[in-house]
């Protein structure tokens, strides 16, 4: 009964295909996703892990405080609390912005919480953890302390930063 045999074979193959598709689906669901906050700085794209970003704030009234490093322009109030602000351009040795517009990411890293002055938030996206590449090997030791990895977004490369490393760098001698 060749017809019956062929039918059984097709059923078997179809069944296997469905199983394979289901297993792929299960794999996709289980593959860890990471939320990242993409932001621009000096024309380049950077990101913080979303878990480290508490809030996105406008730049309003940064009050200077004497004696702090140059990359800490001052303090802000956030609903009655006082938060520090670090200037990420200065931490990364980038030139000052052409205009004074920008945003502040209120971020945590290690035991530290601080505002981080950036040019502007571009997007908040979920990416596969496996799509995050390790930091390039040719980075110098200081830079490796705050670069957590890299990823691609719409054909552009994104540098994933570690907020704890950024904070440590901001106050390093």
């Amino acid at each position: 009964m060749p017809h019956q045999h062929d039918s059984m074979k097709s059923d078997r193959i179809l069944s296997e295909l469905k199983l394979l598709r289901e297993s792929r689906t299960i794999t996709d669901v289980d593959e860890p996703m990471v939320t990242v906050v993409l932001f621009s700085l000096d024309g380049e794209l950077y990101a913080f892990p979303g878990a480290n970003v508490l809030e996105i704030l406008p730049v309003e009234g940064i009050s200077p405080i004497p004696g702090t490093p140059e990359c800490i322009p001052g303090l802000i109030t956030v609903r009655g609390d006082i938060e520090s602000v670090i200037d990420l351009r200065r931490v990364l040795d980038l030139p000052p912005p052409a205009d004074a517009q920008g945003q502040i990411l209120l971020a945590t890293g290690g035991e530290v919480r601080s505002g981080v002055l950036i040019d502007g938030v571009e997007d908040v996206v979920d990416v596969l953890r496996t799509s995050i590449l390790p930091p390039p090997r040719n980075l110098d030791r200081q830079t490796r302390e705050f670069v957590a990895g890299g990823l691609e977004r719409d054909g552009r490369s994104v540098t994933l930063l570690d907020p704890a490393g950024v904070f440590a760098r901001a106050v390093a001698p």
């Binding site: 006082i82 520090s84 601080s114």
Partner: peptide, 22 residues
Amino acid sequence: LRPLPSLVEPFSLVRGIWAALP
């Protein structure tokens, strides 16, 4: 009064600045 954020406190305390008040 609000304590100074941990990033700035080490730099400020040695100059006598110990808290902030909005």
